[in-house]
Design a binder for these strands. Structure first.
Lengths: 235, 235
DNA sequence: ATCTACATACCGACTGGTTGGTATGTTGTC
DNA sequence: GACAACATACCAACCAGTCGGTATGTAGAT
C-alpha cells in the first residue's frame, strides 16, 4: 500500500471512549485543561497503540508506517503531523509502554498485601497468569524493539532502557523491603534481583515465540518463582 | 546500494582456511568425493557467516541481501544461486548456527570432568565467560531472528526452534545424570531446567542490548548459577 | 591427450513494487 | 480568521528478486 486511502473503519469518529484496549496511555501533555471528550486529538494515542500491537507481532523494521496508520485508523498525514519520523514514533511508543505498564503495580489485589515478599510473589504470579493466549498479546514491546535498534538507533535504545529501568525500579522497593524483613541468601541486591526478574521474563517471551507455546514461558517463570522462594528461605 | 559492484575484499580467493571464525559449518552436501581445498564453492558458507554477523547487529528485516553479499565478499548472483530467497538463507543460517554451537559441548576442558554436575556448572561458567566485549559478538542469532519471524514465517520459526531445541537436548544428558547422582529439589526435570537455562541466556542478551552493558547479562547468569547450585543442594 | 557437451559457480545491470517522507489541500475549533 | 488536526496525492530512494552472460571444472567419446 503506497498511498493511504481512508481506512475502512466503520465509524471513524467513535461515539466515545472506544479503543478501550489502549486507553491506559494518557494525553502525555500535562493536565487536561477542561473538556470531556478528546475526540479529535486522539490520533497520536491510536498510533502509539497500533505500534505496540504491530511491532510486537512483526518486529520494528518489518512494520511499515502505512501499516501502523491502517491499524490506527488514520492516514499518513496524521502520522507525520504528530511524529517527525518512524523512529520518533518508536521513542514515543517506548515511553507510552512505560505508562501502559504502570497500572500493573497499583491495580491488582496483591499490591495491597501487607508483607512485601507476598507482594513480590503476587507480582510473579500475576506475570505468570499473563502468559496465556496468543504470544503477541503478552510479549514486551520495548524488549522486541530494542533487539533491532540497539546498535542502529541510540535514541530508541535509550528510550527502551528507560522503560525497562522504570519497571525494575518499580519492583525494587518491595524487594528491598522483603530483604529488610526476611533477609536474603548470598547478599543478593534488590535491583540485581529486579533486573534478573526482567531478564527471565524477556527470555521466557523468546522461548514462547520460538516454540509458539506459552507453556514453555510459564515453566521458566515457575523456575524464577522457585529461585526467589529459595533466596528468601522458603524453599 | 542497488547494484552490487565487486566488493573491495583485498584478495577474493583467500589463500586457504581464512574466515576461520565461521569454519565450523560443513559443506552441507554429503561426503566430499575427494579434493583438498574448497576454494570455489565457499560462497555459501561465507554468506551464512555474513548473515550471522549482520543479523545479530541489525536484526533480520533491517539486513538487506546486498549488505549480506558485501560482508560475505560475493555478489547477488552468487546469493541467489545458492539460496532461493532471503528467507531460504535465514533457514540455512539457523541450521548453520546449530553446527557452530556444537563445539561448545565438546571442546572446552570442563566437558571432560567426571561429575555431570561439574560439567553443567562448567558450562554455565563457560557461557558466563563469553559475555564480554561487543554485544553483537556474544548474542544469539536464532534468538534474534525468531523475534521478527515467529508470526510471519513458519519456516524460519521452525528452523530457529530446531536450533534451540538442539541446544537444550545437548545440555539435558548432563543434567539428567547430575539429577541421578545428586538428586534435585522439587522434582525439577532435566529438559525443563535446560530450557530455563536457555531462557535466562536469551533474557540476558536482551538486557545487555538494552543497557549496552554485558555486566548486566553476567549478573543474571550468576543468578542462574546460584539457582542451579541451590537446586542441587549446594546453596 | 584432446575435443565436445554439459554442469556448476558466479557476475552485475536491470526491474517492479515498496517505503519513509513531503507538499498541499480541507475541516473543525477557539 | 488563524491555527491545529487531520486527509490526499505524490516522490525519490531502496530492495528483493531476475536474467543474460562468463568462468571454471568434468565426464565421455575418439
Amino acid at each position: 500500500m503506497t498511498t493511504n486511502h481512508r481506512p475502512s473503519t466503520p465509524s471513524r469518529r467513535a461515539p466515545r471512549g472506544s479503543a478501550a484496549a489502549a486507553r491506559t496511555v494518557p494525553s502525555a501533555g500535562g493536565g487536561a485543561p477542561a473538556g470531556g471528550r478528546a475526540a479529535r486529538g486522539s490520533a497520536r494515542d491510536k498510533l502509539i497503540a497500533a505500534a505496540h500491537q504491530t511491532v510486537r507481532r512483526k518486529g520494528y523494521a518489518a512494520t511499515t508506517v502505512d501499516e501502523i496508520c491502517t491499524v490506527a485508523g488514520v492516514t499518513k498525514g496524521a502520522f507525520f503531523h504528530h511524529f517527525a519520523s518512524k523512529d520518533a514514533l518508536a521513542v514515543a511508543a517506548a515511553e507510552g509502554w512505560t505508562e501502559r505498564a504502570r497500572p500493573m503495580f497499583e491495580l491488582p489485589p496483591h499490591t495491597k498485601l501487607e508483607d512485601p515478599l507476598d507482594r513480590l510473589l503476587g507480582h510473579i504470579d500475576f506475570r505468570l497468569a499473563m502468559l496465556e493466549g496468543p504470544v503477541e498479546d503478552f510479549t514486551c514491546f520495548v524488549g522486541t524493539m530494542v533487539q533491532e535498534a540497539y546498535a542502529t538507533s541510540p535514541a530508541i535504545r535509550t528510550a527502551c532502557e528507560a522503560s525497562i529501568t522504570a519497571y525494575c525500579e518499580a519492583l525494587a522497593p518491595d524487594i528491598e523491603a522483603a530483604i529488610a524483613r526476611h533477609g536474603i541468601s548470598h547478599g543478593v541486591g534488590a535491583m540485581s534481583l529486579a533486573r534478573h526478574i526482567q531478564a527471565v521474563l524477556q527470555g521466557a517471551f523468546i522461548m514462547a515465540k520460538t516454540t509458539d507455546d506459552p507453556a514453555i514461558a510459564r515453566d521458566s517463570v515457575t523456575h524464577l518463582k522457585r529461585y526467589i522462594l529459595m533466596l528468601f528461605g522458603r524453599g
